[in-house]
Structure formats: C-alpha cells, structure tokens
Design a protein around this nucleic acid. Structure first.
Length: 498
RNA sequence: GGCGCGGUACCCAAGUGGUAAGGGAGAGGUCUGCAAAACCUUUAUGCGACGGUUCGAUUCCGUCCCGCGCCUCCA
C-alpha cells in the first residue's frame, strides 16, 4: 500500500508524494509559550513526531519547521502579571517545552523558530498584501480583506453567507471593515510590547507568523502543514489566505489535523481547567514513556479519551514489550533456525509498516507488534525458538520502536536530568529509615541507586541459597517499599522499578 | 443551524460485504521455598436504534437517537 494521509483540504485520504523527490517540507504549529503546555497539546506534538519518524522510516528526508508563538494577548498578559519582560517570560516556557519534548522522546525539528525573531519578514508580507489589495490599514492596525480572496473557506468549509458584509463590528478590540476580516498587524497599545516598523509601531497578529516562517524556511509551497483540529479555523484558513494572496501559489499541499484529547467527556483545555501538564503526571508517578505510548496509541484522527487508568494500561503494555525485548536480548536459545518463526517476524514488521502507511494507523501498528510478541513468547516457551531467530525478532521490534520509541527505558535518567526525581539516598540510611518506619509505610517513598539494589538482590539470593527465607523475604519487602520489583526466574533474579 | 469526529466486550481500541485485531483488567494454567513477576490460555452469535439492498451487513444506503469538537482565545 502506498503511503497515504487524510488531507483536510480535500476531506479525503490521498496518496502522499512530496513536491520534490524524497524531500518533505513540513511545517507544524507549535505551542504558544505563555504557560506550560498540557498533555492535550502534546497529543498533537506526539502525532507530529510519529509522522516525521514514519516519513523518515520510509526513506524521506524531512525538513520540519516548528514555530513558537511568543507574542499574543495571553503571553503579554501573563508576562505583565509576572512583572517580567516578554522575552524573558517566554524563554522560561520555551525551556520547559524543550524539556517536556525531551521527556516524551520527541525528535527535535530541523528548526524551532520564534515568532518575534521574524518581525521584519512579517512586515514585508503585509506590505505585499497591501500592494496587492488584500490588506488595508485602520487606526494603525492592518487587516486582511477576506472578500477579495475568493478561496476563503476552502479548508474549513465554513459558509460565510450568513455574515453581513460591511457590518462594523468590534471584536478583538480593534476596528475592521468586515466581520470576516482578520488582523495582520496590531497597532501599539499603551504599556504593551511593540516593534517600530515600516507599518508603524505595533505587533504582529497571530496568523501571519506561520505564513512567514513556513515560507521563509520551506518555500512558497510546502508539502505538509499540521496542527490540532481547533486550528483549522480560523488559524489555518487565514494562513492560506495570507500566503496564497501574496504568492498566487498553493501554500500547503497536505493539511493534517489531530483530534483532541478528551477528558471526562470534554476537550482538555486551559480555560476549562481540566488539564494535566506532563509534570503533573510525572509527579503522580507515571513514566514519560507511558504518557507517550498512550498519546500515540490512538490514531490521530480519533478523539483520545484520556484517563489515569488509561495511563496505567499503557504502562503495563510497555512492560510486556520490554519483557519480550529483554528475553530476546538475554535468553539463551539452541543453535539453529526456525524459518516459520522468522517469516512471522518479518510479516509482523511488514504489517506495522503498512498500518502506518495507512494514514498512521498506530492502533493497528500496535496490534501487529503484539502479535509478534505472543508468537515469539510462545515459541520460546515451547522450546522452538532458535538462536538464529533472534535477529529477525529483534529487528522487527527495534524497527517498530524507531516509531513508537517506548522500549528504551530512559525515563529514570531523564527524570533525574530535569530534577524530577528525589536524590538517591545511601542504602545504610534506607535500611535504618525502613526499620524506623516499621518496614516503610509509604510515607516519602525513597529511591535506590542501582548498586544498592544489586547488592540487596545478591544478599537476598545468598539468603535463599542458605534457606534463610525470613531474611530473603525481608529484603524483598524492603525493595518493594523502595519501588523495586523482583522477578525470580530459574537462573537469575531480575529487578525493575515500579 | 453549518462543518467535522465518534458511538465495537468491564476499561482503552482496530477492522472488514462472508461471520469480530491488539492492549489493560478479570478468570484458569505453567514456573516458584512461598509469593511476586514473567509467560500461555480464556473472555462480544455481538459491533447506538430502526428500516432497506444483498445469498449474506457490524461493514453499503436511508431515517433516527446519543456524545464530542470547531464556527474568529484554543494543539
């Protein structure tokens, strides 16, 4: 099956081909950095990450530009409330965004660009629109004249016939000639940040930044433009109007929109107060990979029901994959080959690739990999798995993880890097604390270092060999209280963090 | 009202004109000093409702019900 995506512009699933051989020019709408992003925002960013990873997996060269909206009403309001200059205020949340991206395993885009670094080209684009009769000035602000752009509405399919032409309305606190017109440039207001430009003193409207940054770095026609479904109108509709009015060329060929995260039956949003940030969930003890898995597990065009129970389910699912990966890399198998098994592994890899080709059907891709896990485990348990089969399964699993990126448990390291886990205590203190607390009653769960854990595991196994089960069980309980689960197998004791 | 997404087992969630992937949870089993973990097996005559087309529909058509999103703050 050919690679295909649902294109909002046509309303259909279409075969994807870049404009220029294997080069994909992709623009993705990033966050407005007025606060921490919540995981509803990250649903879209995870989708975009899956998209770019799959494109690369299929051999395309991806050139992705992601914007950071670092000036708008909310950003200004919040920075003023905090008494911090706009640039410093947004820098803090850009940093937080980068950390969250890293925690979620999102590959960095080729360019991450800030709106306020592109004021000059925005001004030039607005000037072009004025010259071509698509924009006008009013009280120092500039507006896009929608009635002059006949394609307006082609993305969102919104019918504007009911809106009266020429009605003078005051939305957004600025005057414009037509209710549909939208602001390109806002005249400076007392006490707000502004830029001195050829258009006068002011700041850019929201939509113009994306048109400018996309065209600056990717050219007048790009292959893919994506964002959340709430951006279809007005944001993306307006981007099309601005860009195509200026250039006379198609702005973006494929428009991909992610559906929202739903929580308790409604969209997760800041204004409803029903949101979690990544840090909130980490503080509740959920690992970033589980969050990534959950966000990636539902195909992007479907609303995703978010719940803590769902996160727990995601965590368990990842465990199953990691356990299989662990078996594959560590267990001893008889020499030889089992060609039937290897065929299954290859078929599994083929199946998940095809699932992703089909408009990024991540749910089906998951099904494919879990089938492979079961086939592998069953063969291992039955003694039919051979050493020569290892590579085929490992290859399939690792290829799969090039997209999903949840196999490698780097959570703990990353959390430490960003100071999101407690310091490791010494084992001596731990044991003392545990005894004092009567075996640890959950108050202030402590975190053990690997060496301490290994030492306790080894001590326990000595005790077991000497049939000192009381001591062995005591150590097991202590480790469990410290969040370490032991797994006794025939040959060894494996441990992992809860 | 317009546009869009959805209604599949206890929960999450794929999918197909030919009789329902996968994950979680539950149950049973294997293993084990015990336990846990791990692994295996198992769980929808049923896919919002009612009609229609068809040899056959959850899948196509029609009508209807319900949930959600967008309609100039919003990933």
């Amino acid at each position: 099956m050919a690679l295909q995506f649902h294109n909002t512009l046509s309303g259909r699933v279409e075969e994807f081909q870049p404009l220029e051989d294997l080069k994909v020019r992709m623009y993705t709408c990033g966050p407005t950095v007025y606060d921490f992003a919540h995981i509803g925002n990250f649903r879209t960013f995870v989708f975009q990450d899956i998209l770019r990873r799959h494109l690369k997996y299929r051999g395309y060269q991806v050139n992705q530009v992601m914007n950071l909206t670092d000036v708008d009403d909310r950003t200004i309001a919040n920075s003023q409330a905090a008494g911090v200059p706009l640039r410093d205020y947004t820098a803090k949340f850009i940093e937080a965004f980068q950390a969250d991206r890293d925690l979620l395993g999102l590959d960095p885009p080729e360019r991450l660009v800030r709106a306020t670094d592109h004021i000059e080209p925005m001004v030039r684009l607005i000037e072009t629109l004025v010259q071509k009769g698509f924009a006008y000035e009013s009280d120092g602000s500039y507006y896009f004249r929608v009635k002059n752009f006949s394609d307006y509405g082609k993305l969102s399919k919104i019918d504007f016939s009911g809106i009266k032409d020429g009605a003078r309305v005051d939305t957004d606190k600025y005057d414009k000639a037509d209710a549909r017109d939208f602001v390109l440039w806002k005249a400076a207001k007392e006490g707000e940040p502004c830029w001195e430009t050829a258009l006068g003193s002011g700041r850019p409207g929201w939509h113009i930044e994306c048109s400018v940054m996309a065209m600056t770095y990717l050219g007048e026609t790009i292959d893919i433009h994506s964002g959340g479904s709430d951006l279809v109108f007005p944001h993306h509709e307006n981007e099309i109007a601005q860009s195509e009015a200026a250039t006379g060329k198609p702005f973006a060929r494929f428009w991909l929109h992610a559906e929202h995260l739903i929580v308790n039956g409604g969209k997760m949003s800041k204004s409803l107060g029903n949101f979690y940030t990544l840090r909130d969930l980490i503080a509740l003890g959920y690992p970033p990979t589980a969050i990534r898995y959950l966000l990636a597990s539902v195909p992007y065009r479907k609303p995703l029901n978010f719940s803590l129970e769902g996160l727990q389910q995601a965590r368990q699912a990842i465990e199953r994959l990691r356990n299989f990966h662990y078996r594959l890399t560590t267990q001893k198998f008889p020499a030889g080959q089992n060609s039937d098994l290897q065929a299954k592994a290859r078929a599994g890899a083929e199946a998940f690739g095809q699932a992703l080709d089909d408009n990024l059907n991540t749910a089906e891709a998951l099904g494919a990999i879990f089938n492979l896990v079961r086939d592998g485990n069953t063969a291992m348990d039955a003694g039919e798995f051979r050493d020569g089969d290892r590579a085929a399964f490992l290859d399939a699993l690792e290829r799969w993880d090039m997209i999903f990126a949840v196999l490698d448990d780097r959570d703990y390291d990353k959390l430490k890097k960003y100071g999101l886990v407690k310091e490791e205590p010494s084992v001596v203190r731990l044991e003392a604390d545990l005894r004092e607390a009567g075996g640890g009653n959950g108050a202030g769960r402590v975190t053990l270092g690997e060496q301490e854990i290994e030492r306790l595991v080894s001590e326990r196994n000595h005790a077991r060999q000497n049939r000192n089960f009381a001591r062995a069980d005591q150590i097991r309980d202590e480790l469990l209280d410290a969040g370490v689960i032991l797994e006794d197998t025939r040959n060894e004791t494996r441990w992992k963090r809860k």
